Computed example of a mutant assay.
Amino acid sequence: MGLYPDDIEAQASAIITTYRDRGWLIATAESCTGGLIAGALTEIAGSSAVVDRGFVTYTNQAKMDLIGVSAATLDAFGAVSKETALQMAHGALMRSGAEVAVAVTGIAGPGGGSAEKPVGLVHLALKTRSGLVDHREMRYGEIGRDQVRLATVRTALEMLAAAAQTPA
Rank of each mutant, 00 (worst) to 15 (best):
C32V: 15
T84P: 00
L36E: 06
F55A: 08
S48E: 09
T73N: 00
R20Y: 13
M64F: 02
A71P: 03
L74I: 08
I37P: 13
V56A: 10
V100A: 05
R53S: 12
E83T: 09
G35K: 11
W24S: 13
L41Y: 03
G54R: 13
N60M: 10
M88I: 07
T28G: 12
L66K: 08
V51Y: 15
G35P: 10
A98C: 04
T59A: 11
L36K: 06
D52A: 12
D75M: 04
A29N: 11
T28D: 12
V69W: 05
A49I: 00
A98G: 04
E30G: 14
G78Q: 01
G68Y: 04
Q61K: 06
G39E: 11
C32T: 14
R53H: 12
S70E: 10
A89E: 00
G68Q: 07
I44K: 13
D52K: 10
D21I: 01
A79K: 02
V69H: 09
V100M: 02
L93S: 03
S48N: 09
V51M: 15
T73D: 01
T59W: 06
L41S: 03
D52P: 08
A85W: 06
L66W: 09
R95Q: 10
A76F: 00
D52T: 12
A40L: 06
A49Q: 10
G34S: 05
I26G: 12
R22A: 14
T42E: 02
A71T: 04
S47E: 12
T73P: 00
